[in-house]
C-alpha cells in the first residue's frame, strides 16, 4: 500500500507533464487549426483584427536571452572559477551563498527595481550608445519608436543579473567534480595555476559548462514578470536592440488577463510554443550536465 502510494506520487510527476502538454494544446487547438502558419512565421500581431503573427515574440525572447547570455556567461563562469579554484578557502562558502541569495530574490522585485532604478541608470548610456556606435551599427541605433529606456536591452540586462546565479552555481558544481589530482599533476609539471586549469580542468568541464549555460538560457527564455515590467511589451520587430519589444512570456502575462475568444486562444498557443521550447532546452541542458556531474 505504502509502496504503491509512493510510486504513484512519483509517477504522477510524469502524468502532470503529459497533462500540461495535452491541456494547453487542447485549449489552443482551434487557433492552431486556423492560424498555425501565421503563429509560427507571421510578423504582425493585431488580435482585434484576428491577425496572430507570433514572430515578434519569438524575436523578443531570442534577442533578450542572447543579450543576457552575452553578459552573464563570462561573469557567471568566471565567478564559478574564482570560487572553485582561486578564492581563499574561507571566502568560498561566503561567495557561493551570496550568489545563491541572488537567485532567491523574487523576479517581481527584479522587475520593480529594474523599472525604477536600473532603467533610469541605463538610459543615458543607451542614448550615448545610439549617438555614437548606433550611427554605424544599426542594432545599437535609435529605434523608430524613439528611445525610452525600457526595451529589449534593459530586459536583457535584468535577465543577465537573474541568470548569473544559475550559470555560476551549476558551473561551480561541474568544476568541483574534476579530481584535484588532475590539477596537481599539471602543477607538478611546472604549470602555473591558470595553466593547470586550462590543461586539466576546462577541457573536462566543457560539456558541463555548456549545460550550465543552456540552463541559464532556459531560465532567460521563460522569465516573465521582470521582463514584462521593463520591456515595454509592444509586439514589434525592430532593427535596434534599444527598441521596445515583447517576449512570449511577457505578452501572455501582460494580455491574457484581459483577453477573450480567439485572442485568448492565440495567447494559449504562444504558451504552448514557450512550453515546447523550454522543454527542449531543459532536456538538452540536463543531458549535458548529467553526463558530467553524475
Amino acid at each position: 500500500m505504502f509502496r504503491a502510494a509512493a510510486a504513484s506520487a512519483a509517477a504522477a510527476l510524469l502524468v502532470v507533464l503529459a497533462l500540461m502538454l495535452f491541456k494547453i494544446g487542447q485549449a489552443s487547438a482551434p487557433v492552431w487549426s486556423k492560424h498555425a502558419g501565421e503563429l509560427l512565421t507571421g510578423t504582425r500581431w493585431a488580435p482585434s483584427k484576428e491577425i496572430f503573427g507570433g514572430l515578434p515574440f519569438v524575436f523578443g525572447t531570442l534577442v533578450t536571452s542572447a543579450i543576457a547570455l552575452v553578459l552573464a556567461v563570462p561573469v557567471g563562469v568566471a565567478t564559478a572559477l574564482y570560487v572553485s579554484e582561486f578564492a581563499p578557502r574561507r571566502l568560498r562558502g561566503t561567495i557561493a551563498s551570496l550568489t545563491d541569495l541572488l537567485a532567491a530574490v523574487p523576479s517581481v522585485i527584479y522587475g520593480l527595481w529594474g523599472f525604477y532604478v536600473l532603467v533610469p541608470t541605463l538610459r543615458p548610456f543607451q542614448a550615448w550608445l545610439a549617438r555614437t556606435v548606433g550611427r554605424v551599427i544599426p542594432i545599437f541605433g535609435t529605434p523608430e519608436s524613439g528611445l525610452h529606456g525600457v526595451g529589449l536591452f534593459s530586459a536583457g540586462v535584468v535577465l543577465a543579473i537573474m541568470i548569473i546565479p544559475t550559470i555560476s552555481a551549476v558551473s561551480r558544481e561541474v568544476f568541483l567534480t574534476i579530481p584535484r589530482e588532475q590539477r596537481h599533476a599539471a602543477l607538478a609539471l611546472g604549470a602555473t595555476r591558470w595553466e593547470s586549469i586550462k590543461i586539466a580542468v576546462l577541457p573536462a568541464a566543457r560539456p558541463g559548462i555548456i549545460g550550465a549555460v543552456i540552463l541559464g538560457l532556459g531560465r532567460a527564455l521563460g522569465e516573465t514578470i521582470a521582463v514584462t515590467i521593463v520591456i515595454g511589451n509592444v509586439p514589434v520587430i525592430s532593427k535596434s536592440i534599444l527598441s521596445y519589444g515583447a517576449t512570449m512570456p511577457s505578452i501572455i502575462a501582460g494580455n491574457f488577463p484581459e483577453a477573450s475568444g480567439s485572442h485568448a486562444q492565440a495567447l494559449l498557443a504562444i504558451a504552448l510554443m514557450l512550453f515546447a521550447l523550454t522543454l527542449l532546452v531543459n532536456i538538452l541542458a540536463r543531458v549535458l550536465v548529467r553526463r558530467r556531474v553524475a
Binding site: L13, K23, G222, P249, L268, A271, R286
Partner: peptide
C-alpha cells in the same frame, strides 16, 4: 530526469496550465 526538467519550465506555463 523529468523532475529536473520540470523545475526549468517557466512558472507562467504552470499558471496557464
Amino acid at each position: 530526469f523529468f523532475a529536473d526538467v520540470m523545475s526549468g519550465i517557466p512558472s507562467i506555463v504552470y499558471g496557464i496550465f
